[in-house]
């Protein structure tokens, strides 16, 4: 078990290094930060001088090397755009993203499981048909449109929810939370729903498919034959066996919710790391972009690690496989 974790951790480091390497390889093609930094009143000489000072004239692998050696000492540099330490910027923005991600993951999980069970148990009901059709729309509409649509309905027309931002926030140590105030909670509703829709649909369809599968298996038939109550069969036996893949998928999706909340954060002006990244890309803020991409890699790697460990615990076959040296 320990060897497994250590091996995974080593792999994680390699993944992050590869991500950073590719990032620096690509940065040359996203534009020139110097132009936007210097503005109109600058000469070619100024451009050259600044590029030299920032080390942008060096080949990308040298820039990559500097980034890695500095990162190992906890130095992620200064944002070109905001002129503040990158680590500080990301840490300031992280709570907003995590709160949004957790809220939307909760909505997706609860809503997805409930609707999944419902549609599996009553496959022919009219409401199931409605839910299945609506879910198709949910996956096909771009997040941007859903977000803007919700804003227009609930903020502009009905005026019941705020159109942007995070509302009033409270500081608990370095963690800035919006969960403790009414305006903070109200601000969370629309972005969380927007971000959750895709995952919700995914989980719902997964639960439904798994559940239908399980309901057809022999042990459920035996359970029925034994005269167990429908409730016990559906929730005690069928649902339990459905949940294993659901947990895995939810875990993995949590990673992508944190990493790819970019669009939702932009539409709702949610002050998380995603909107920080978008603003940074526009002006080619290399230090922030590099740190963010490595951070996203870290999130995925850590969540994958947890999921693997969970599997390890849940699935006896995996354990046996490791023991036999596979």
């Amino acid at each position: 078990m320990l060897a497994f974790v250590v091996r995974r951790l080593l792999q994680s480091v390699i993944v992050m290094l590869v991500v950073a390497f590719i990032a620096f390889l690509v940065f040359r093609y996203v534009g020139d930060p110097v132009t936007s930094m210097l503005g109109q009143d600058s000469t070619i000489a100024d451009h050259e001088e600044l590029r030299e000072r920032l080390g942008l004239n060096q080949p990308f692998y040298i820039q990559f090397y500097h980034f890695v050696t500095n990162a190992l000492q906890g130095q992620f540099g200064i944002s070109y755009r905001l002129q503040q330490p990158v680590a500080k910027l990301i840490m300031e923005r992280l709570p907003a993203t995590i709160e949004l991600a957790l809220a939307s993951a909760t909505i997706a999980l609860v809503g997805g499981v409930v609707m999944g069970i419902y549609t599996a148990l009553r496959p022919r009901a009219f409401t199931s048909g409605v839910i299945m059709t609506a879910s198709l729309i949910g996956v096909s509409l771009p997040t941007f449109l859903i977000g803007i649509g919700l804003i227009y309905v609930f903020a502009v027309e009905l005026k019941v929810l705020p159109s942007f931002g995070r509302g009033t926030v409270t500081d608990i140590g370095w963690w800035r939370t919006g969960l403790l105030t009414e305006s903070g909670l109200r601000s969370l509703i629309l972005p969380a729903i927007t971000l959750s829709l895709f995952q919700l649909t995914l989980i719902m369809r997964l639960v439904r498919a798994e559940m239908l599968e399980v309901l057809r298996t022999d042990y459920i038939r035996f359970a029925r034959a034994r005269g167990l109550s429908t409730r016990a069969i559906n929730f005690g036996h069928a649902l339990r066996n459905t949940m294993v893949p659901v947990i895995t998928i939810t875990g993995l999706q949590l990673g992508s919710v944190i990493a790819f909340a970019i669009i939702t954060e932009t539409v709702f002006q949610w002050p998380g790391v995603g909107s920080l990244f978008v603003n940074s890309v526009q002006v080619v803020d290399v230090p922030v972009m590099a740190a963010y991409l490595v951070f996203v890699a870290l999130v995925f790697v850590v969540i994958n690690l947890f999921v693997d460990i969970l599997y390890f615990i849940v699935d006896p076959r995996l354990r046996d496989g490791v023991r036999s040296g596979k």
Binding site: I151, V156, S163, F164, Q269
Partner: peptide, 18 residues
């Protein structure tokens, strides 16, 4: 002073009175 990056959201904020 409120920076709102997305143009549609910016206008929606005005229309909703935010």
């Amino acid at each position: 002073y409120l920076p709102i990056t997305d143009a549609a959201t910016r206008i929606a904020a005005l229309l909703s009175g935010d």
